[in-house]
Amino acid sequence: MAAVDTEVADEEDEAAEEPARRRLAGKVLVLYVALPLLVLIGAGVGLYMSGILGGSTEEEPEVEVVADPVFYDLPDFLVNLSGPPPAHYLKMRVSLQVVDAEAVKRLEIEMPRVLDGFQTFLRDLRPEDLEGSQGMLSLKEELMRRMTLATQQPLVTDILFREIIVQ
């Protein structure tokens, strides 16, 4: 019986050691295999997403540098408007947004022609032509058209009203 007891005791010891080995084997598997594998996969995904490893072959789009706007102030306009008495006057200060700094030189050369076109147009206006936002928009469009006719090339991109007084 003693032999049977020793065999049973040996089997119990082996049975007690096996679960301990399995727990240790699971921890070892996680610590030495699964965890480093997850770290490597994470690093690979990070490198891929950042574009260092693989990633897209597209180059980043070039950013166009927009030049600062160039403005040119015209002299003040003071004209009498057409229409029945009493006489009405228009005082106007205008700035022109010019294509570039070189266009300012060209604009200064053409300035007598520009001022003449503006003056003749402004004298034909009536006070009711300048009423409301539609009147201002029409005025701006017509001045822009006359500017292009006077300079014979598009030097000005916009006309900006600094002051308009109808009296």
Rank of each mutant, 00 (worst) to 15 (best):
R123G: 02
G132H: 06
P75A: 13
V28G: 04
M147R: 04
V65W: 08
D76I: 13
V104K: 04
L125E: 00
R106A: 15
V63T: 11
E163K: 15
R145I: 07
R23M: 06
G44L: 15
M92H: 07
R106L: 15
V63L: 08
Q167L: 14
E142S: 10
I165A: 14
E59K: 10
A43V: 10
I52F: 15
D116G: 04
N80S: 12
V114L: 07
V166Y: 01
S133W: 03
L74I: 01
L90K: 03
N80P: 06
K105D: 15
A2S: 07
G26T: 13
E131R: 03
T157F: 01
L122V: 03
Y89R: 12
A150L: 13
A15W: 11
M92Q: 10
T148M: 08
E163P: 05
D76C: 07
I41G: 07
A103N: 02
L90P: 00
G135T: 00
R123V: 07
T57L: 14
P127F: 10
M136Y: 06
R93G: 06
D129A: 01
A103F: 03
E17A: 10
Q152S: 11
D10K: 03
D68G: 01
E64H: 12
T151R: 06
V63R: 12
V99I: 02
Q97Y: 01
E60V: 09
E12Q: 12
I109K: 06
A25C: 14
V94Q: 08
E131S: 04
G44R: 13
